[in-house]
Design a protein around this nucleic acid. Structure first.
Length: 889
RNA sequence: GGUCGUUUAGCUCAGUUGGUUAGAGCACCUGCCUUACAAGCAGGGGGUCAUAAGUUCGAGUCUUAUAACGACCACCA
């Protein structure tokens, strides 16, 4: 019976199976391992627009590491998953799909049918996303899965909306808003992206009404001239003093408008005169208000020109611009053009130019909400990690404008405002009213618009826990512990959750915000559809396994900064998995005999620990305390690097090698001890790696024999503890042995000794180092390919031809009966001597510095003294050896 | 225009409160299919930590300036 692991590490053979085991055993649910303290993460809900990308994979990996770590630490841990309806983004996709399949527009199929299709989309893509989350190994509680448009979230949105309205914090009004003529909806300020577009400034003459020259103004958008209501100049501007109060005419059209004096125009820019189009520019809007100018609507919602544009009516905005400019030029009104890059606002979904437009919309009054939210972060109730991101938060929150929340879309939360069909009275309420309080009629129309998708996301940390109901979950898990998300949605989401949480719950929604960067392609470019450089996490998982992808995304990154995806990095992580797999095979191989019968294993009491055992135990114990501290500070990449090194360098490269000679030997008792240490250390390592690579650690764990108190599944195990014993003397001894082994290997390699050839080595240890050096005898023999190791008191006992290496406290010699190139050795020794002299000199200088000796902490000074002694010692030995070698030449 | 970030080996990047001879992976060179692992083992080469000044006993790490690159924010006709 073979109890060992299969020969090859093949993640595909167990990852899905293990995930199913976890899920079936309900161990993702907090109740199964309830601690007293709670740890909660609500998952940033992925949009149902498509499938998961690398950004989601990183997001999920980070959260899962934290959740698994805290779960192992004994917290009552909840990770609550869900998806986002992503109003505008999804609507665009569904419109496209319908167009492609039926050729129809959404208007043609109607609201009801459209929503049916959208829900079908949600079903398909929502499920795909949760399947992908499972592939990643996310240990979230699927029984609590939510959707931003499910019943509970609907309830929360309505409750919140009505509350804010009743408090006067939501209002409806006509304002200049950002309008996307392609999506045909209003957008909030942050949904507008600024792009520099190559374009032109056109300088046009607006002739005087009286036939005078008039005034020259510049514009980058000539089509907006149909909405002009005035030309403004600065009151200080001498050039135009006489014109103020007079009228000019819109060229070709002849419409008359006044020249007004207003502080807004900058005399140093353009001609100093500005056309005022309140309907197309926020500044112009303000000037219009100040000057009481009124406004003219000139563009339709779809970006085509209205009747006011005369013969250009019905043309698309850009088409009109072309024709209009041409006509003006021919008529002699175009003074000049300049090539310029024009800062242009574009829609963050469709990237078409946004048109500012006066429109009646719903707004959230932001100042009263922002103030306590700023204060909360200042007081440290919510902490950004890394902390520099709080600046971004403050910057935005302190200069916040009212939030336009209505969207002219169908997919989303419909605004809970009802209009009386008879008298038009508006009632804001969670449900449609039965009687109009004003006219008594009973027929109402609900507001046609839906809410900004972020309005519901803003409630996510508590709507998912049951709010506005006072549920047990809400009481237990709010506020949540950590929010993990990318820096790209600090405004959209993080800030809004904070002020909404304070408003609705009276408390910030999370204690920490762990910010991560973007996953870029191997050349550092953003992954995007248009570039076609996106990498599908599922394909990576298919080749290398989820553990490898996770480990790659979690290691080698600086907090909050971007990471490049590179196949080689995933490969390296997979290789690490393979290393661990094989090390585990070695361990298991030594736990059972040929027939699969368990061999005796010592326990903590009976084990007769040897130096190397104590070294390994101590090294792991030190790492536990280090790594735990790193995890607590969210330094996950540092923790990952330490575990990697601990497993590969310490456990595999050294400890396993140390045990081999013991297993080949005859001392059964010693084998029992070796089995014990090998196994218990492997278990600790698996536990520490588990949050990062959950599948492989679980699979290996399943093959290891358990002692009493140990769980069947590693996911339910406890985080390792720091050992109470102090084995630091053994650590020093083993490290000395390692140096000696390396020295001999180095000599072998330099001289070119065949790997299979056993050689002799002699060690001379300084007083105080003899014992430590003797402890390493066995290791040297087995790991440096020695036939024998002997200890000498002085150099007189050495053969004449030796190669040597000087180490702190000891000097290692290898007799060179055959081929030795003394010239080469001399060169090497001289190089060593020069380096050592430098080191000695720099140490001496350091210690000669009275300031250092008196001011630096005692342990630091002592460390420097020790260092000097070591260097002096090594230098002496090297110099002596040089003299010897020189004699031979 | 404002804010922030980055600059460390050929490449991609770590480097915690300043404290051993600055690290890793990949790539490169040499030698090994040694019964856990060639997705591996052993050994090796390669860095004046962007530049300049400063603080300090001590700077990759702190301060200031400069340069290059990048991100975000911003109402400029």
């Amino acid at each position: 019976m073979d109890r060992n692991l299969p020969k090859n590490y093949d993640p595909k053979t167990f990852e899905d199976r293990i995930y199913k085991t976890w899920e079936d055993s309900k161990c993702f649910m907090p109740e199964t391992k309830g601690g007293k303290e709670h740890f909660t993460i609500v998952m940033p809900p992925p949009n149902i627009t498509g499938q998961l990308h690398m950004g989601h994979a990183m997001d999920a990996s980070l959260q899962d590491v934290l959740v698994r770590f805290k779960r192992m630490q004994g917290y009552d841990t909840l990770w609550l998953p869900g998806t986002d309806h992503a109003s505008i983004a999804t609507e665009v996709k569904v419109v496209e799909k319908i167009k492609k399949e039926t050729g129809k527009t959404k208007e043609e199929i109607g609201r009801e049918e459209f929503l049916k299709q959208a829900w079908a989309w949600k079903e398909e893509y929502g499920n795909r996303i949760t399947m992908q989350q499972r592939k990643m190994g996310s240990s979230c509680d699927w029984s609590r899965e939510r959707f931003t448009m499910d019943e509970g979230c609907n309830e929360a949105v309505k409750e919140h909306f009505v509350n804010l309205y009743n408090k006067g914090l939501i209002y409806k009004g006509a304002r200049l808003i950002n309008w996307c003529p392609v999506c045909k909806s209003a957008l909030s300020d942050i949904e507008v992206e600024h792009e520099d577009v190559r374009g032109k400034y056109y300088y046009f003459r607006y002739p005087g009404e009286d036939g005078s020259e008039g005034i020259v103004v510049a514009t980058s958008r000539p089509e907006t001239m149909f909405g002009d209501v005035a030309v403004a100049v600065n009151p200080e501007d001498e050039r135009y003093k006489d014109l103020v109060g007079k009228n000019v005419m819109l060229p070709l059209v002849g419409r008359v408008m006044p020249v007004v004096a207003d502080p807004y125009p900058d005399m140093t820019k353009g001609t100093g005169a500005v056309k005022i189009t309140p309907n197309a520019d926020p500044n112009d809007f303000e000037v219009g208000q100040r000057q009481g100018l009124g406004m003219i609507e000139f563009m339709a919602e779809d970006g085509t020109m209205l009747d006011v544009a005369g013969k250009y009516a019905g043309m698309d905005r850009y088409e009109c611009r072309k024709a209009w400019v041409k006509d003006l030029e021919e008529a002699g009104y175009l003074v000049k053009t300049e090539d310029m890059t024009i800062p242009t606002g574009t829609c963050y979904r469709c990237h078409n130019a946004v048109e500012p437009r006066i429109s009646e919309q719903w707004f959230v009054k932001m100042k009263p909400l922002a103030e306590p939210a700023i204060e909360a972060v200042r007081k440290g109730e919510t902490v950004f990690v890394p902390d520099r991101y709080d600046k971004i938060y403050y910057h935005w929150m302190e200069d916040i404008k009212d939030w336009c929340i209505s969207r002219q879309l169908w997919w989303g939360h419909r605004i809970p405002a009802y209009y009386c069909q008879d008298c038009g009275e508006m009632i804001v309420a969670k449900e449609s009213p039965s009687v109009c309080p004003k006219c008594g009629c009973t027929h109402f129309d609900q507001d046609e618009d839906v809410l900004d998708t972020w309005f519901s996301s803003a409630l996510w940390p508590f709507s998912t826990l049951g709010w506005p109901e006072k549920t047990k979950d809400l009481k237990t898990y709010y506020p949540t512990s950590v929010l993990v998300t990318g820096y790209d949605i600090i405004f959209f989401w993080v800030a809004r959750m904070i002020f909404s949480g304070i408003e609705c719950m009276g408390e910030v929604p999370f204690k920490h915000v762990l910010i991560h960067g973007l996953v870029r392609d191997s050349q550092g470019r953003k992954m995007s559809k248009s570039l076609g450089n996106g990498i599908d996490p599922l394909e990576v998982i298919d080749v290398y396994g989820a553990d490898a992808l996770r480990f790659m995304l979690l290691s080698g990154i600086a907090p909050g900064s971007d990471i490049r995806y590179q196949d080689e990095k995933v490969q390296a992580a997979r290789n690490f998995g393979n290393k661990l797999w094989n090390a585990s095979r070695f361990v298991i191989m030594n736990l059972y005999d040929k027939d699969g019968e368990a061999l005796p294993i010592a326990d903590a009491k009976s084990a007769a620990l040897k130096t190397e055992d104590r070294w390994m135990i101590q090294t792991i114990s030190d790492a536990v305390s280090d790594i735990t501290a790193n995890m607590d500070r969210f330094e996950l990449a540092l923790a990952a690097a330490k575990i990697y090194d601990l497993i590969w360098s310490n456990y595999c490269d050294w400890y396993i090698e140390f045990t081999k000679s013991r297993f080949y030997g005859e001392n059964e008792e010693d084998k029992e001890t070796a089995r014990f240490v090998l196994l218990s250390c492997l278990k600790d390592l698996l536990k520490m790696l588990h949050p990062f690579m959950p599948f492989i650690t679980e699979e290996i764990w399943g093959h290891l024999p358990k002692t009493e108190g140990e769980k069947d599944m590693i996911i339910l195990e406890s985080w390792p503890e720091v050992s109470a014993q102090d084995f630091s003397e053994d650590v020093k001894a083993v490290e000395l042995s390692m140096d000696m082994i390396k020295a001999v290997r180095n000599i072998r390699s330099e001289v070119g000794v065949a790997p299979a050839k056993k050689i002799k080595a002699i060690v001379i240890a300084d007083p105080g180092f003899e014992e430590a050096a003797k402890k390493g005898e066995d290791y040297l023999v087995s790991l440096a390919g020695l036939e024998s190791l002997s200890f000498a008191k002085s150099k007189d006992e050495l053969p004449s031809d030796v190669k040597s290496a000087a180490l702190p406290g000891v000097e290692v010699f290898v007799p060179m009966d055959e081929l030795v190139d003394y010239k080469e050795e001399l060169a090497k020794l001289q190089k060593d001597r020069d380096q050592l002299s430098k080191n000695v000199a720099s140490q001496e200088a350091k210690l000669a510095n009275e300031n250092f000796v008196s001011r630096a902490p005692e342990n630091v000074v002592q460390a420097e003294r020790d260092k000097l002694a070591n260097y002096q010692d090594m230098l002496e030995k090297t110099v002596a050896r040089i003299a010897e070698v020189e004699k031979k030449l």
